[in-house]
């Protein structure tokens, strides 16, 4: 028990068995289009789960349903506790160009406060978030002065400032070049495993098999639309992982075969 308390990391080792989020027979229908049909999935606290599948299969819709952006047509989404909070991160940084990096990070706080202006402790908190994503020196920079990767770091800091339990990522670094993307993936894992935020659980939509395998505890492989779970593949490679650790592993071949079989 002591070892767990002192542990600097979170992840499968200290994962309690009960789910933080469960989808029960979830369906999402847009008019004639069935995006998701009677899908059930439980995500445990502390897990990093990837949703992998062909484009247009409905995995993004699933993530948006979890975020409350898309109303479920059937079934339900059960949160482990009422105060559970989730932040959504998009493929694009979506920074407000008229705000500095710091003020962009503060946006969720401002919105939560309503009429009340943010105070100096909020500003310190935003600075801490920028430090966490290694952009402490760029607090006063405007988005157009930052590179694509830096903008996405600011977006990550903005997603983390409300201290969410769950982070929902929709192909978060998909618009970036390969190298930047790899670095940011590693940063994300570092932040997820560190104790600096309350963040415990990450659900990430991706269509990159190596990325899903390198980052996740579990890869959920989806079929073509309507999204159905083809297989739930655990990635039991110890952390910290090196990029090479998963590349040739058996489950990567299995995932690839599953996707190729086109089920």
């Amino acid at each position: 028990m002591n070892a767990i308390v002192l542990s600097e990391t979170r992840g499968p080792a200290i994962m309690p068995p009960d789910p933080i989020l469960s989808l029960e027979d979830l369906s999402v229908v847009f008019g004639d289009l069935v995006a998701i049909k009677a899908l059930s999935l439980a995500v445990r606290r502390g897990e990093f789960v990837s949703l992998l599948g062909p484009s247009g299969c409905g995995k993004s819709t699933l993530l948006k349903a979890i975020a409350g952006l898309v109303p479920p047509t059937g079934g339900k989404i059960v949160r482990a506790f009422a105060s559970m909070s989730a932040s959504f991160m998009f493929q694009k940084p979506l920074l407000l160009p008229w705000r500095t990096a710091l003020d962009n990070v503060l946006l969720p706080v401002e919105i939560e406060r309503g009429g009340n202006a943010v105070d100096s402790s909020d500003r310190r908190n935003a600075e801490r978030m920028l430090n966490l994503v290694q952009l402490g020196e760029f607090a006063g920079a405007y988005p157009h002065q930052l590179s694509g990767g830096m903008q996405q770091r600011v977006a990550l800091a903005r997603a983390l400032i409300s201290n969410p339990d769950v982070l929902l990522l929709d192909e978060p670094f998909g618009a970036l070049d390969e190298l930047t993307r790899e670095v940011l993936n590693e940063e994300l894992i570092r932040i997820w495993r560190s104790m600096e935020t309350r963040l415990s659980t990450v659900i990430m939509v991706t269509h990159s098999i190596p990325e899903a395998a390198a980052m996740s505890d579990r890869v959920i492989v989806f079929s073509q639309r309507p999204a159905r779970i083809v297989e739930d593949v655990p990635v039991d490679v110890p952390r910290p992982r090196e990029p090479g650790d998963v590349r040739s592993a058996a489950f990567v071949r299995r995932i690839r075969a599953l996707i190729r079989s086109g089920r």
């Binding site: 952006l69 959504f88 998009f90 407000l96 946006l107 969720p108 919105i111």
Partner: peptide, 29 residues
């Protein structure tokens, strides 16, 4: 304002007037 920005504001729980003041008006300038 792009639909994605509107979605961002929605995930942040912004009210209509917050969306207007903090997103639509500056976007319109």
């Amino acid at each position: 304002a792009d639909v994605e920005y509107l979605e961002l504001f929605k995930t942040l729980g912004a009210s209509r007037s917050q969306e207007f003041r903090k997103l639509r008006v500056p976007y319109c300038l």
